[in-house]
Design a protein around this nucleic acid. Sequence first.
DNA 1: TTGATTCCATACGGTACCGTATGGAGGCAC
DNA 2: GTGCCTCCATACGGTACCGTATGGAATCAA
Lengths: 190, 190
Amino acid sequence: MTTQRLSSLDWIQAGFRALLSGGEGAVRAEPLARELGVSKGSFYWHFKSVADLHNRMIDHWETAATATIIDMVEQGGGSARHRLSALMDLVMSDLDAPYGGPLAEISIRDWAQRAEFVARSQERVDAARLAYLSQLFERDGVTSKQAEANARLTYSTYIGAASLPTAERAATVQHLLTLLDLEKQNAAHG
Amino acid sequence: MTTQRLSSLDWIQAGFRALLSGGEGAVRAEPLARELGVSKGSFYWHFKSVADLHNRMIDHWETAATATIIDMVEQGGGSARHRLSALMDLVMSDLDAPYGGPLAEISIRDWAQRAEFVARSQERVDAARLAYLSQLFERDGVTSKQAEANARLTYSTYIGAASLPTAERAATVQHLLTLLDLEKQNAAHG
DNA sequence: TTGATTCCATACGGTACCGTATGGAGGCAC
DNA sequence: GTGCCTCCATACGGTACCGTATGGAATCAA
């Protein structure tokens, strides 16, 4: 029948569902086993411990949250300004990935406050995203220093907008991009 | 000696320390009792249950995070534009309140994803802050509709900037306020 | 078919917490 | 001092989880 065996990825995805609905404290072996309809004997075959699952969840998130998304934007092509819009629309969509999208970001960011390995992963993700954003702004024609400031501002707004009602998220970030365009034009003939 | 009795507020503040360092899952009776150097007999005298402490923590945060801060800004006086800056500087300062400042915001925002009473409190806090921000922008001379958009953008950036390194937080939000000024002047003679 | 390997069930001891029950120490009234 | 009230200690049963140990079923190799 449909008595299909589970892979490690199944457990990792279940872990993200639990993280979303219950926070880090809900990512535990026995509750996940119940949700997946198996016993925890399965869990301890795939993972050395609960901490092991946590590590592999964060590893999975780290690549999915940077390289994967950047690849999608780059393959979409277009001008730097267009890629900025595309990137923001992409990361703003709900439940857009196996790792849970912008809502999972909130939980992970909270988790990073108390787990070193999460904090370090978070820092790498932030750095990679900021570097990519900065690169896009620079390609769009502003100075290196200005591009970094723009990147920080855009990134902050993206993170914060995850807490807004879904309907207002995209418009809010696009509003910011409009303002940054205005600033660029103003600097050009100022 | 210093065998001072504890008040409910002592437990609530200890609850916020635990929330910061360990998330919602760490706000429990026995660990808090250990940290405060008493037994849990004390806890269950002050609170009916752990859920009772959670509710009173959120109640406490709700008033501290809105009315208290708005009062401080309004008493500082100055122009609307000056109050905006003052407000952002105030909420950006680390550990500025018994409820833990911007770092506690991250934990509470995460907590709101899975606890109804936290989500409702969060919504009220967001609404109150957005209304106040919107009011400041309107006083500064933009249209009502534009003021609301500005408020959403400013608020998103504030929330997201809490995740930036401390040194870059204030500058990032001030950067946004500068951009909004530029937009206003541009609309004035455009 | 036989053996080996993969994946899971069951059962166990151990730990940390919840909430309750009960009693004790200290201040305050008088 | 006597009683009362406030705040806390101690002790208890109950629950949920962790990690391990061990055996069983399914799959594949040959």
